[in-house]
Design a protein around this nucleic acid. Structure first.
Lengths: 148, 148
DNA sequence: ATTTGTGCAAATCGTTTGCATCTGA
DNA sequence: TCAGATGCAAACGATTTGCACAAAT
């Protein structure tokens, strides 16, 4: 059993250690909250979460953390390259735990993001960036809707 | 001179008539506000405006219109296909007067959207949509940042 | 006359911030 | 110890909504 007081989830000591290292390597102190959130984010394969959703999850898992801290943490993880913010519709921000080069489906009436299967989608004929600018990233969003 | 009471802009009767028809064809009553906003939007080539910006423009042009009406109008135009909402990330929604199939540059520190020169960008290897779904649209956003 | 649109101000939603308190190194 | 993290509640900006009034057909 780890030293965490509340959480009902199980985090092995070895996982805690590797998460700690990951945070430390990004210049972030491995605090209880950050470790717990990292566990929720990174131990379940690729995920696309909003701040609210992650906060709800944490509360359900018995992790004491405020919404403000969830926002802080998500942004810090994003800046550290542990996560990637995905822009779909400007109301809510989603964070993708898959930071490799890939694209997304967006299911319009469910407000749900899914990775496009790897190796699919090729973008060609990219125009060159205007003078003094460079291309930071190319995002492709394939918007899906219910047929009929 | 048209019957509009306030606006300092010049809208010819023939333009008013064609805008009227366009609105009517979309099932929208050609009211003073909608005509004036349509004029601002469609008489200056391709534009990418936010609700706030358009409202400011209208106020400067002497068009009496409330911000709420600008929001309503933009959404109605969007639904009618006269405009296209572009989602980037800045927490603000931009509306593009170019409704044809094309893509965008997004200049990161200026929060500014620019059309990618026509005929550029080809997307291939598109995965097929999951069962019961169809592709509504494919959006490509080329994010630019200042070099160095 | 009836339906639809408009303005205003208040309400809402996602997100950020200020500040006192706590915690990890 | 003490910089850095957290929680809370209040502040915020963009957008929406409710309702009385005005305008279009």
């Amino acid at each position: 059993m780890s030293l965490n007081n509340g959480p009902t989830q199980n985090i092995s000591d070895s996982e805690t250690n590797s998460l700690s290292d990951r945070l430390r390597n990004s210049g972030l102190r491995p605090t209880r909250q950050r470790l717990s959130l990292a566990h929720l984010l990174f131990s379940q394969g690729n995920r696309h979460v909003s701040a609210e959703a992650l906060h709800d999850e944490a509360v359900v898992a018995g992790i004491p953390v405020s919404l403000a801290t969830v926002y802080n943490t998500l942004h810090q993880f994003n800046e550290a390259g542990l996560l990637r913010a995905v822009a779909v519709e400007s109301s809510k921000t989603y964070f993708d735990t898959n930071t490799s080069d890939h694209h997304h489906f967006f299911i319009e009436n469910e407000n749900c993001i899914v990775d496009v299967p790897a190796s699919h989608i090729t973008v060609t004929d990219l125009p060159s960036a205007p003078d003094g600018m460079e291309i930071a990233r190319v995002d492709v969003i394939v918007r899906l809707r219910q047929k009929d």
